[in-house]
Amino acid sequence: MKILISSRGEKTIKLLVPTRLIFNRFTAFIVAKILTKYVSFNENINISSYDITRIVKEFIRMKKKFPDLVLVDIESSDGDIIQIKL
């Protein structure tokens, strides 16, 4: 996963993070625990560790199918850019 943060007149930050380091069963378990404990969702939203594991598996499958897929790309009117690539 590549994260690019660029601000006009500032240094561009490029972060290269191994996708497996972020998306694995262990982080899925931790994220699910944090979400259920600290984040209050609308009552219609139920996020379990099973759901997070499904999302993790899907991200890994998408990484193989669409390497370099740009998940989020934000360009502000001030010239700031935030980009997250798979």
């Binding site: 939203i45 996020i47 759901d51 899907e58 991200f59 360009e75 502000s76 009117s77």
Partner: peptide, 23 residues
């Protein structure tokens, strides 16, 4: 946006399906 901000979000449909199932 009218302010000049440009936002692009690309989501695999499979993730959208999971998101919908989660409510």
């Amino acid at each position: 946006s009218s302010d000049g901000d440009k936002i692009r979000v690309n989501l695999p449909m499979s993730l959208v399906k999971i998101g919908l199932e989660m409510g």
